[in-house]
């Protein structure tokens, strides 16, 4: 079978079609939110929300088993959405309050999220194995219903994240100035937190709750090495997110490896390569003198020939050592 035939088979599989759509949307949306989180120094927030969302998954499962819906995990994603949004708003409130105590409160919340999830899933009649697909992702089990959830939430996250990017940027860049401009800082902070929560829940099926944050943060880490502006960082990160998600997914089509982990490892390898290459590329670019031309505050008797405005390419003579 030729390579082209293999690609056609891949695209022809309904399972793969759903998985690819989910991967593209998640890959595009996660770094957009991640850029704001990195700017706000909250790169680990996605992790925290992921932990809390696990309790939501188990809660959804529990409610589903009480209501006798089938399949048993039909309410798991809505449960995760609710828990993640509530959790992110609480994290934001804690952050607003203070620093040291907030750190502790967050840690306790994260552990409570995992423990609560494991406990509740048992009560709901499930096993820890049921949680595994949420913890590490199982894109192969994406149903049409899941896909609609993903599409709707991803469009919402991208729409708000890109449409209101200037406001979100202003608040993330300088909260104090934003307050002094009458911007609704609190509301906007909650909005960023909610966007992060929604991203976590849509990325849950692709990369898993434990690896969600990687897809939000690592593409941003790569992009900010090279981009010059905030907008460019966001666009490049989003492109990287789509690329690693699709490539990772395609790799798992032919090799039996877990997709979530593959995507994250790809992103990290990309970061490592970029970080290694960056000094080489940066050196080539830095040809001009970064110092602005300003008059000195002090009177300097002699000017070093190399610094004179009319210095040509020829190296100046070293100043003669002065001897007493």
């Amino acid at each position: 079978m030729s390579a082209w035939d293999q690609v056609l088979t891949l695209l022809g599989s309904p399972l793969m079609q759903r998985a690819l759509i989910a991967a593209v949307l998640v890959g595009a949306a996660a770094p957009v939110v991640g850029t704001f989180l990195v700017q706000r120094r909250m790169a680990l927030m996605g992790d925290g929300i992921g932990h809390v969302a696990l309790t939501g998954v188990a809660l959804g499962w529990l409610v589903g088993s009480w209501a006798a819906v089938s399949p048993a995990d039909a309410l798991a994603v809505p449960g995760a959405v609710v828990a993640a949004v509530v959790g992110s708003v609480v994290i934001e409130l804690v952050r607003e309050r203070g620093r040291t105590s907030g750190d502790l409160a967050l840690a306790i919340m994260f552990y409570g999220g995992i423990a609560g999830g494991v406990l509740l899933i048992k009560v709901a009649g499930g096993t820890n194995a049921n949680l595994m697909s949420y913890l590490f992702g199982s894109i192969s089990t994406v149903s049409t219903g899941d896909l609609w959830w993903t599409v709707a939430l991803a469009v919402l996250v991208l729409g708000v994240g890109v449409g209101l990017r200037w406001t979100l940027f202003a608040v993330s860049h300088d909260e104090e100035f934003a307050r002094a401009s009458g911007l609704p800082v609190r509301l906007v902070s909650m909005l960023v937190a909610t966007l992060a929560a929604l991203t976590v829940t849509i990325a849950m099926r692709v990369v898993g709750l434990l690896l969600v944050s990687a897809l939000m943060i690592v593409p941003v880490a790569v992009a900010q090495l090279y981009a010059r502006s905030f907008g460019r960082t966001m666009a490049v990160a989003s492109g990287i997110g789509v690329t690693v998600s699709v490539v990772g997914l395609v790799v798992t089509y032919w090799n039996d490896v877990p997709p979530g982990a593959t995507i994250v490892v790809l992103a990290i390898v990309l970061y490592a390569l970029s970080a290694l290459l960056h000094p080489l590329l940066a050196r080539r670019r830095a040809a001009h003198d970064p110092h602005p031309d300003m008059s000195d505050d002090v009177l300097v008797p002699a000017v070093d020939a190399a610094c004179a405005p009319d210095a040509s390419g020829t190296p100046a003579d070293p100043p003669a050592p002065r001897r007493p």
Binding site: W166, H173, D174, A178, Q224, S229, F230, R232, T233
Partner: peptide, 16 residues
């Protein structure tokens, strides 16, 4: 403000 290190141009700061 020493916000999180995402590259930002003067244009973006002034536009905000």
């Amino acid at each position: 403000s020493a916000a999180g290190g995402v590259p930002t141009t003067a244009l973006e700061v002034v536009v905000s």
